[in-house]
């Protein structure tokens, strides 16, 4: 990969991998650590991601598929720089935002405060958030609950708020982890509509889904992951076929 190509990348990852060390007997206190100074605990090593290279181009929608436990979520967390990588490096141009059930909101704060914090964390100025504020609240259908702490929200209300923040306050690179499972049917329709209208175009999106129709509809390229290995990246048809084949083998 030459320098010219990397310029067009939103994310460049080289030789990245991740191993989780799971300790059988946890050493969580100063006392335990002192008593076991010369007695290293047994750690189970779980190779969540084997070394891989990955380029995500600016403006593309990349699909990420694989069975449960294949390492999709770990990969996304590495790429979003939430987890550090064990080997190699990741270059990200701009802000990243990871979205699954939530988008990083504090339950001790009100909807208003969470909107301002999320917006600010993603690089917006206060004035820019002011301008977006009403649209966010309206889309989330939470007009009467602007100054209510979100710990009193129902799970549906929380999900709507999170989705609305994510739609309106975009990061440069969005990682969407099964987001179409949010809210009731009516809200889902609304979510898909806004997603198609303003989100997918010219925005860098990494989409994780078990729904192959969603992947087919929106992704120009698809990465297929199996047991922490990047098996294939490219044509969506081929990737989906490989994934379905694996599912059949297991069945």
């Amino acid at each position: 990969m030459n320098y010219q190509n990397e310029q067009n990348n939103a994310i460049t990852a080289r030789n990245i991998s991740k191993v989780f060390h799971i300790f059988e007997d946890s050493q969580n206190t100063v006392k335990q650590r002192l008593f076991n100074l010369f007695n290293t605990p047994h750690a189970k090593e779980i190779y969540a991601l084997k070394p891989m290279d990955l380029d995500i181009k600016k403006g593309e929608c990349l699909g990420l598929i694989g069975r449960n436990g294949s390492g999709k979520s770990t990969l996304v967390r590495l790429l979003a720089k939430v987890y550090p990588t064990d080997t190699g490096y990741i270059k990200v141009q701009g802000t990243t935002m990871l979205m699954n059930i939530g988008v990083g909101m504090s339950h001790e704060l009100t909807a208003r405060e969470n909107i301002y914090i999320s917006g600010s964390v993603l690089g917006l100025k206060i004035k820019e958030i002011d301008a977006l504020f009403d649209a966010i609240i309206e889309f989330a259908e939470l007009k009467e609950f602007v100054d209510t702490k979100i710990k009193y929200f129902s799970s549906g209300m929380l999900a709507r708020l999170a989705f609305s923040i994510a739609v309106n306050v975009r990061a440069d690179v969005m990682f969407l982890d099964e987001i179409f499972a949010v809210g009731d049917v009516k809200f889902q329709e609304k979510a898909i509509k806004i997603f198609e209208k303003s989100w997918i175009e010219e925005k860098t999106v990494v989409l994780i889904s078990h729904n192959m129709d969603v992947i087919k509809n929106y992704c120009q390229r698809v990465a297929y992951i199996k047991k922490g290995n990047l098996e294939y990246i490219g044509n969506p048809e081929i990737a989906i076929e490989m994934y379905l084949k694996e599912n059949h083998e297991v069945a």
């Binding site: 979003a80 939430v82 990243t96 935002m97 990871l98 979205m99 939530g102 990083g104 964390v121």
Partner: peptide, 9 residues
């Protein structure tokens, strides 16, 4: 944690 769990802050 909510501040850094979903973003690269």
């Amino acid at each position: 944690k909510y501040l850094y769990e979903y973003t690269n802050m």
